[in-house]
Design a protein around this nucleic acid. Sequence first.
DNA 1: CTGAAAGCGCTTACAG
DNA 2: CTGAAAGCGCTTACAG
Lengths: 354, 354
Amino acid sequence: MPTAKPTDASIDLEGRTASARRTRGGTKGLRITDVAAQAGVSPITVSRVFNNPASVAPETLERVRQVVQKLGYVPNRLAGGLSSARSRLIAAIVPTIAHSLFSETIQVFSETMSRAGYEVLLALSGYSDTNEESLLDTVLSRRPEGVLLTGVAHTESLRERLRNVGIPVVETWDMTDTPIDMLVGFSHYRIGEAVAERFLARGMKRPALIVASDARALARRAGFRDRLAQAGMTSVAEVIVAPPSSLATGKSALPQLLQGAPDVDAVFCGSDLLAIGALGAARQMGLQVPSQLAVCGFGDLDFATETTPQLTTVRVDGTRIGVSAARFLLDRFNGVHERAFVDVGFSVVERESA
Amino acid sequence: MPTAKPTDASIDLEGRTASARRTRGGTKGLRITDVAAQAGVSPITVSRVFNNPASVAPETLERVRQVVQKLGYVPNRLAGGLSSARSRLIAAIVPTIAHSLFSETIQVFSETMSRAGYEVLLALSGYSDTNEESLLDTVLSRRPEGVLLTGVAHTESLRERLRNVGIPVVETWDMTDTPIDMLVGFSHYRIGEAVAERFLARGMKRPALIVASDARALARRAGFRDRLAQAGMTSVAEVIVAPPSSLATGKSALPQLLQGAPDVDAVFCGSDLLAIGALGAARQMGLQVPSQLAVCGFGDLDFATETTPQLTTVRVDGTRIGVSAARFLLDRFNGVHERAFVDVGFSVVERESA
DNA sequence: CTGAAAGCGCTTACAG
DNA sequence: CTGAAAGCGCTTACAG
């Protein structure tokens, strides 16, 4: 009896290619044909059970699902995506998710997208442009169906390429007249102006800056300085630190600032972290906040204002940004082709000094 | 002249299947064959330029790279992954990245993995087990080469399935004697004990709890209560809140707690957020912290201790967890088959009261 | 409501 | 150092 065939065909993986050269393949190497064979239908029908169940007869549906359950079959989306040109993947390019700022946005963005059947590929760009450019290749190699960007994309070549890909793009957390596609953000420049105005209204004589040198922080700086210049304050003391900003840098930046300009009576910090660090330094130096030194931060951390009532801060609604960005992408997938553009604004929060 | 052929063949997409039924396909629909044709090599050579450049002659390498650059070709990893059974994808299953706790871990994990050529698929599980189970299917459909889990996986069926897939798994942020595979974490139970001990050493008479009802917080609660019971304190007042914990819940939980047990002189809160919220409430109630009421939090936020020196807190090194988890996975990919298991411990931090 | 054929864009395993 | 053939596991576009 040569070439005896296997007897137990219940989980028979015949049909496996003759040379069987590829051993691996995730989740037991189960394929759609295995499910199809067991359920007595064609692979296409199994495919439809996952992707368009309404088009399958209830009984067939049930039978296939039983087999899927029994075998523990999980479709291979690498194959599915390749075949359908639909990866069901959204790329989110973010400088960092540590220390909050963007984490709330990514959180709700991810929740909203996954409810709609998409997953989020997280790409951390740090704060360098060159990095962002090479990151884009990595990201595009997964053929995402949409992209969330943090900030308005910097280099023209990146913007150009993103436009060429032809997938929806949402820029967030910043503002521009010429977005690549869609935008949910706010103006950092106007925030700087608003904080300057607040300081002026409070009668501050010598406002100063502590900022990290990233694009958005520098835009806030520009708005701040321009507004002060309008009021005749053309020389503004400042300490510029390397991103990412941290408690420690804020802490060391304040003494440095005051050393060069001892009469400073208000500081606009590039982030809540820097502000909290500066406040710690102020405490150590015996400075009363805000009476001797007003401190203003920036961010979306309830934390900051809760723990530090004497802090003024600019609050941004990171949650709304994330939800809106997701909605805009999903609308596109549903054929809505408007060019969504939203300024979510900001608010300057100042607690009553207790 | 019927069937005239196109003249300009410089970016000629001939070879495209006759029926051309699939229009889409990302990044201009450029395929490896387009690059190969332009460079005068076979597709396999182009593939090697990306995946194993050392095996290609320097001149060929250069020529292919020029064409890639010129055309703006980005390989399709859906196809590559399907063909090679290597997705270069790592799944990270995390309850949430908002409000920090895990965000630092994910940040450094993602950085480390991407430096090694892997991308991170972020899957947010919330705090429900059932969710985690269905999330696993979604995640496995991408055929990740490794999985990072937050916490020790709950249901046995999930553990079972994960083991069957045969890819490396790292559980983090918790401790168990029977991990699925590898583990980088610490014992929540022992943290509870340690905080109880600290309170006892300080002579607290009536320690209490404010915790969210997630598995890990409840483990801390158990350690806390057991240790107090050893000291003869068998009745411990507590308020249990629904996760995720927040400032607001902490704020409302404290009055509730004190209403039922006015003599409480120490509270162990399930997280820094809860603790900060509770501190806010204490302030409003005119309670001195820590002299009248000691408050202890939990987390990895510099923030908490910096802004709130009167807070005692349990600190965990989220960064180390992320880096170690990444290293363990990468070791596996490099053929190191040890079953890595690390207890990173924790520390109770108490600032000198100023 | 269901299926046979062809193809998605890569890489493997040889062979030279 | 380079390439021709075959296959990875799905889905599309028909047709019935």
